[in-house]
């Protein structure tokens, strides 16, 4: 369990103070994959470094597994850090050491025996699928392989929390997929709480169950990924959501709509079960309206389907109102779209 309580972080440089975080609170439960998304400079990399106290808050408290980090001595803090793994955008592997020795480092720091180290590292190498690279040096690996080694190194000391600092930002889309799948597997098999910071909404969409959207040192929206994706309120959140869910009417459709004055246009939103029900067919059968689907899109988040549809209804106003009332009972959200 990770809890940030009203965190402020201010950097002082040459007498100029710069507030990186301005009152941030969040809570990740055990087993969560918590995503923090924001543009560069939003304060997200400061935020993730607070969780393992690489950065100390100017004000506020960081609580990990029920204990505030500021109550620990330096020595105690070092052993707490051993229970929090971290992976990085640029991997930060030791170029001078082999893959095996890189993964072994946290165990060497824990003064484990040679035999124990060999067993654990061999097991981890197998888990990340790089058993044949034990004797290679990081220079000989691809980006995705390096991140796998970074993950194995972070897991070596059996942490309960894994922090991912833009872990996929330097990787191509396909490699990103495989790394995300690996993180998901870690979360499920070892019940490790994962905190991910990213600027890619696709990362949040694919593996996170909770999300916080950051802007200018503040969290502007947070909650279950599904509810944030389904109903983004802040314009920045809407921008992020739009990168993975296309819910705007395409220009060509809009153009033809403007030419035509007949009918009324509605935007529908489906979540979960309602996405798989035959709603449109029910609509046509029961109401004397012509239905014209202008745009439709389905996205899967957290094994739940999120659908968007824009339809044009033609018919008398009275019937359309009835039809809308029917739809309102079936779908998550219905709103009339202005055609200007």
């Amino acid at each position: 369990m990770i809890e940030l309580k009203d965190i402020h972080k201010t950097y002082e440089r040459n007498g100029v103070s710069n507030a990186a975080l301005k009152g941030v609170s969040l809570r990740a439960e055990k087993g969560d994959i918590y995503g923090v998304i924001g543009y560069s400079g939003a304060g997200k990399s400061t935020l993730i470094r607070l969780i393992n106290y690489l950065e100390k808050p100017t004000k506020g408290q960081v609580i990990v597994d029920g204990v505030p980090l500021d109550s620990y001595s330096d020595k105690e803090l070092r052993s707490v850090k051993k229970k929090i793994g971290m992976i990085f955008q640029h991997f930060n592997l030791l170029e001078s050491k082999t893959v095996f020795d890189n993964i072994a480092i946290p165990l060497v720091l824990l003064k484990k025996s040679k035999k124990e180290i060999k067993e654990r590292v061999t097991e981890l190498l197998q888990f990340i699928g790089l058993s044949d690279k034990a004797k290679s040096y990081p220079k000989e690996l691809s980006g995705g392989q390096k991140q796998r080694v970074g993950i194995a190194r972070a897991l070596a000391s059996n942490p309960s929390i894994l922090l991912c600092d833009e872990a996929t930002s330097a990787l191509d889309p396909q490699t990103t997929q495989s790394i995300l799948a690996l993180l998901k597997k870690i979360n499920e098999e070892y019940d490790i709480t994962i905190v991910i910071i990213t600027h890619e909404m696709a990362v949040i969409q694919q593996i996170c169950n909770k999300v916080a959207v950051m802007e200018d040192g503040r969290i502007i929206e947070q909650g279950d990924v599904l509810s944030v994706f389904g109903n983004p309120e802040h314009p920045t959140t809407q921008n992020f959501v739009r990168t993975v869910i296309h819910n705007t009417v395409p220009g060509s459709v809009l153009h033809s709509l403007q030419a035509e004055t007949k009918g009324r246009v509605f935007k529908l939103e489906f979540i979960g079960d309602s996405a798989s029900k035959p709603i449109i067919s029910g609509l046509i059968r029961n109401y004397d309206v012509q239905v014209n689907i202008l745009f439709a899109n389905m996205t899967e988040i957290q094994a739940t389907t999120l659908g968007n549809m824009i339809i044009q209804l033609n018919g008398s106003d009275e019937v359309i109102d009835q039809a809308v009332a029917f739809l309102a009972g079936e779908v998550q959200l219905i709103e009339e779209v202005d055609r200007v």
Partner: peptide, 21 residues
């Protein structure tokens, strides 16, 4: 690479361990 120093600190290495390892 400062990233390596950061990784070392994140692992909870003591200052001597950071220097040596």
């Amino acid at each position: 690479n400062p990233g390596i120093m950061e990784a070392a600190k994140a692992m909870g290495a003591t200052p001597l361990q950071v220097i040596w390892y």
